[in-house]
Simulated assay, not measured.
Amino acid sequence: MSGLPRSSHALVTGGGRGIGREIASALARAGATVTVVGRNRATLDDAIASGSAHFAGVADVADQAAISATIKEAAARQPIDILIANAGVAESAPFAKSDAALFRRMIDVDFMGVVHAVQAVLPSMKDRRYGRIIAVASTAGLRGYAYASAYSAAKHAVVGLVRSLALELASTGVTVNAVCPGFTDTDLLAGSIDNIVKKTGRSREQAVAELSRHNPQGRLITPAEVADTVLWLCGEGAGAITGQAIAVAGGEI
């Protein structure tokens, strides 16, 4: 696997915890200068203290003005070569109980959060004729899941954006891809497991088994497996890989 270009600056949204934190750490170990962005200053500061990142900015990706200002500040230190649009939320509900507000929350964070971040970094990448844009989507962007119509719709939108934007930017030196993890062992998933336990009366072990059954390998994905895929896509040897939605899901897709 080819390494990162020298002195790369990577910005990771939702980089304070979970998959984003693991991606930030992998990029930092590979030699990139890493800026993490999120809503919680404490988790961002902890990422810096642990060596997973070098700089941090507080912003909600759903707030275009806030994320644009934060990215502008980061780019003033060093132009951004790599964007990992990872920030996301997940809520589940039967479609009949999924009101407009639920759909808006999923779209605003999971889809428009990607749009806002890409719009902020893209002009500079095009001017410099180099960039790696990677959206962390989900297998929910490649197939449907019952009781997750709003989340699945938002993630499908992310995959559609990636495929279209990759074609638009194919001659610019900027690649655009998505990674689509299956159910991954993070604190976000832990919240979903708690919700299953609360609503169904199942044990925690039964809830984990219910989610793991989607993966033919019979397990949850690890954040490190997602980060390794992202790191490959960021490397110099992945210049011909664009417009792809890569499932990290043990054969589920």
Rank of each mutant, 00 (worst) to 15 (best):
D63M: 02
R39Q: 08
G16A: 04
G31T: 14
A32G: 08
P94H: 12
A47C: 07
A93G: 11
A69K: 11
V89W: 13
A93L: 13
L44T: 00
K72H: 03
V34S: 01
L27M: 00
A87P: 10
T43K: 00
R17W: 08
G57M: 14
R21F: 11
I67F: 15
V37C: 08
G18I: 03
V12S: 00
A74G: 04
G15P: 10
G18K: 03
P94A: 15
A32I: 13
A93W: 07
A32L: 15
A47Y: 00
S92R: 09
I80P: 03
G14P: 07
L102E: 10
K72Y: 05
T33N: 07
G88E: 09
H54E: 02
R17L: 04
K97V: 04
A74V: 11
A101R: 13
Q78C: 12
G16L: 06
L102A: 02
P79C: 03
A24E: 00
L27F: 08
L102R: 10
A100D: 15
L11N: 09
L27A: 03
I84W: 04
A66E: 06
G38S: 05
T13S: 10
S98E: 07
V37D: 09
D46K: 11
A75G: 04
A42M: 15
A85Y: 05
S52N: 07
G38Y: 09
F95E: 10
A65C: 02
A47N: 03
N40S: 12
A66Q: 13
G57S: 15
I67C: 07
G51N: 04
R39G: 07
A65T: 12
V89L: 15
A10G: 01
G14K: 05
T43H: 00
T35H: 01
R41A: 15
D63E: 09
V36C: 00
A85H: 03
V36Q: 01
P79N: 04
A76P: 01
A96M: 13
P79D: 02
D81S: 10
L11A: 05
T13Y: 01
A69M: 13
A100L: 15
R29G: 06
L44M: 04
G88N: 13
F55G: 08
I71L: 09
A75P: 05
S52R: 04
V58R: 05
A76I: 12
A93N: 11
G88M: 08
I48M: 11
A101V: 14
K72D: 04
A26Y: 02
S98G: 14
A42K: 02
V36R: 01
V58T: 10
G15H: 12
